[in-house]
Design a protein around this nucleic acid. Structure first.
Length: 423
RNA sequence: GGCAGAUUGCCCGAGCGGCCAAUGGGAGCGGACUGUAAAUCCGUCGACUUAUGUCUCCGAAGGUUCGAAUCCUUCAUCUGCCA
């Protein structure tokens, strides 16, 4: 496979280059004629049982690079996950080795489907635990630590912001581990490019510099932008919590809904970052969204594309069918019971006995956190049963409310739906 | 090590003996408007309950008082100033 010469232009157009080391040097490196192209690495720390939206940017970028002919070395941080990189919100809680190793496996399996492990530029999965766990403290301090001036480390933004509240030596040292990873991959595999999220920029350049100091080698790095809403706040969180890639933690339906609800102003950017649609396709979707925003052509394409990438075509079709059933027609009674029950299972369902008060059902379905909140929601006019507003906090659904052969359709607000299966 | 100040609900921040579940802003949630957007406006925002009720809560543990987030003691953490 030959290397695609237009890769960097495409990445630039997609807005994926938020920061970069010498861009011309990077361009030169990426235009290599070597078989297998450039060897690059991107790391994922197992800080949870699943990766999330932010990680998806990196996974997809890795896929773009591989499709352009380069060789990925996706790294799962069995070692760095034991330490934790510093973040503004404060010191992390350490996880046990067992937990981290379990998460390493899960994260690895999440990444694999996005990359190809065959052919001339087959991906090579690596784990920094392999070269970090057995390293002696003395070697670490002499070989790695010697190259890191503390005054420079202290000047980093994350560290500065933590100096008042406090930061442990453990987190302070994180940059050494990640930099060492780059050096190690450079030595073992000839990896010369690393990328990551823009919050990783310090760690990325740390590695480039370590390679230069320790080996006199030339390596490159770039950072992808942080994806934010138009008001500048992070995505990452939605009604149910973080945007997980694991279908057990966030249903494909909810995932699809998230993209469908993207703001108009962000659709173009999200299409460029999260889909593999071509430039003409995206340009045309963007134009359509600008002209006829109410059709939400961009959002629909975005939701379908990204859900298919992450969960597959079947799950995407299910999510679409569910949304069509639940948001489409006004009267739920008109719907085919099979369609409706499938849609409710997709949206999230629980089981309850007939005779359970409506308030308790809202809690059981996870639409509210407490009965008080449930009552409040009813008072506020945001609670619905079978698409009809509930006004009586004491309501106890009976047989006349059951639809589709055994279901109650609960809704909070406009778009938080859940099904209760009676029985 | 000494002196002074701080620690409030998801975040920021008032309160400084009873009227405090605790002003205000942000986030979140709901409603209106729409397109299952954004912006805006309105409402709501500890739990159990629905009674002008109970419980938990203002860094931690004790204490004073009829009564404390508010006063005292000790401890923890942070911030200044001095060594």
């Amino acid at each position: 496979m030959t290397v695609d010469p237009h890769l960097l232009d495409d990445l630039e157009w997609r807005g994926l280059l938020a920061h970069s080391t010498d861009l011309d040097a990077l361009r030169a490196a990426l235009s290599t004629t070597e078989p297998g192209g450039v060897r690059f690495y991107v790391g994922f720390d197992p800080t949870a049982p699943s990766l999330h939206l932010g990680n998806l940017v990196q996974i997809l970028t890795a896929r773009r690079l591989q499709q352009a002919g380069h060789t990925p070395y996706p790294l799962v941080g069995g070692a760095t996950g034991m330490i934790g990189d510093p973040r503004d919100s404060g010191e992390r809680t350490l996880n046990s080795l067992d937990t981290v190793q379990d998460w390493v496996g899960r994260v690895r399996r999440q990444i694999e489907p996005f990359l190809s492990f065959e052919g001339g530029n087959a991906a090579v999965m690596v784990n920094n635990y392999d070269w970090t766990a057995s390293l002696s403290t003395i070697d670490f301090l002499r070989d790695i630590g010697k190259h890191f001036p503390v005054n420079r480390m202290l000047a980093r933004d994350v560290v500065k912001s933590r100096l008042e509240a406090g930061i442990s030596y453990t987190e302070f040292s994180y940059i050494l581990l990640q930099s060492m990873d780059f050096l190690e991959l450079y030595r073992q595999h000839g990896v010369t490019v690393q990328f990551g999220g823009s919050d990783q920029w310090g760690n990325l350049t740390g590695g480039v510099e370590l390679i230069r100091r320790a080996e006199g080698g030339k390596a490159h790095a770039f950072a992808t932008p942080l994806i934010t809403k138009s008001d500048g706040t992070k995505y990452g969180k939605t009604e149910g919590g973080a945007l997980w890639l694991d279908p057990a933690m966030m249903s494909p339906y909810a995932f699809h809904q998230f993209w469908l609800n993207a703001e108009d102003a962000k659709v173009g950017e999200l299409l460029r970052v999260f889909t593999f649609l071509s430039r003409p396709e995206i340009d045309s979707l963007e134009a359509e969204t600008a002209e006829k925003p109410f059709l939400r052509a961009g959002q629909k394409a975005l939701a379908d594309e990204v859900t298919t990438l992450v969960h597959g075509a079947t799950e995407t079709a299910n999510a679409k069918a569910a949304a069509a059933a639940l948001f489409g027609s006004g009267d739920l009674g008109d719907l085919n019971p099979a369609t409706l029950s499938a849609a409710l299972r997709e949206a999230g369902a629980t089981r309850a006995e007939l005779g359970t008060p409506y308030v308790d059902l809202l809690v059981a379905a996870g639409l509210v956190r407490s009965k008080g909140e449930a009552r409040r929601t009813i008072t506020e006019g945001g609670a619905y049963l079978n698409n009809e507003r509930v006004t009586d906090p004491e309501l106890v659904p009976d047989g006349s409310h059951v639809v589709a052969g055994g279901w109650l359709v609960l809704r909070r607000g406009k778009r938080n739906l859940a099904g209760v299966e009676i029985g």
